[in-house]
């Protein structure tokens, strides 16, 4: 065992590799791996042709499309606004800054059902915002736009909290140097600030995206939940469960998990590849 452990790791001066890795693997297995393998095991009980029929019928495909598509849009919006919020919080001093800073985390703490009901109340055709938007022909509640809105709400803190600390650590001397070498403000932003922020941006984006894909509580209130149109994949899972179709529910869950894992893995590799390229330069 110790021979194997020695072979698998690079020599380190810090002791305790065996025990920390052991605890990590045990905890990870109990909390993450075992429940997930149970999921795949249950889905496997369905048999190949039934699995394909359940997991890839047109209704399920529409639900994946909505869940992943809307999550992508929401994460992109959050990427932009989240970065802007982080920028404002780090770079400027103004009254109420601390309160604003604390507000950012609220979507983390708020029960998602509350968020969903609040957003629906505001954006329903008779709500405060909805009644203004309705005459303009813009419908938010009970449409795909509503789904995206809920996802933006719950995902915003992830980008802000990923970008903020990196931005704080960014030394202003670097920007001053760029300026004194004749770079315009836009050039400084684009060529100096942005590249240093990129890893934080990517991980914030990935977190917001993953959170949005899995979101259920707030979306079912604001989406119309119409099959094929505004039905998110997690709702389809719940529907299968309520029909006592456990295997069908796990089939859809497995597909979601695999897509999510592949996407997050790609994002992770992208990050890695970029970093090694930077270091090699």
């Amino acid at each position: 065992m110790s021979v194997l452990a020695h072979r698998l790791r690079e020599p380190s001066v810090i002791p305790g590799f065996g025990i920390t890795l052991g605890v990590t693997l045990t905890a990870l297995s109990l909390v993450v791996l075992i429940p997930l393998s149970a999921l795949f095991l249950k889905a496997a009980g369905l048999g190949f042709s039934d699995f394909i029929a359940t997991a890839f019928d047109s209704r399920a495909m529409a639900a994946y499309g909505l869940s992943f598509g809307a999550a992508l849009v929401a994460a992109l919006v959050n990427l932009f606004f989240g970065t802007l919020v982080a920028w404002v919080l780090v770079r400027y001093r103004f009254a109420g800054k601390r309160i604003l800073d604390a507000l950012i985390d609220l979507p983390f703490a708020l029960p998602t059902a509350v968020a969903g009901i609040a957003l629906t109340t505001l954006f329903a055709p008779n709500g405060a915002f909805g009644s203004v938007l309705e005459p303009l022909g813009i419908k938010v509640a009970f449409t795909r736009l509503g789904v995206i809105l809920a996802m933006i709400f719950i995902g915003l803190p992830f980008v802000v909290r990923s970008v903020q600390p990196v931005l704080e650590d960014l030394e202003s001397e670097v920007e001053e140097a760029a300026a004194s070498l004749g770079a315009s403000r836009l050039q400084t932003l684009w060529l100096v600030v942005l590249p240093s922020l990129l890893p934080a941006l990517i991980s914030g984006f990935a977190l917001a995206f993953a959170r949005a894909v899995g979101e259920y509580g707030s979306i079912i209130f604001i989406a119309g939940n119409m099959p094929g149109q505004t039905e998110i994949a997690p709702l389809l899972i719940i529907i299968k469960l309520e029909q006592y179709n456990y295997a069908g529910a796990t089939a859809i869950a497995s597909v979601m998990l695999i897509i999510s894992f592949v996407l997050l893995f790609v994002i992770n590799r992208l990050q890695h590849w970029r970093q090694s390229r930077m270091e090699g330069r």
């Binding site: 009970f142 079912i220 119309g224 939940n225 119409m226």
Partner: peptide, 10 residues
Amino acid sequence: LYANVPVLDT
């Protein structure tokens, strides 16, 4: 009838 349903709650 169901084509006239705009929202399907759970």
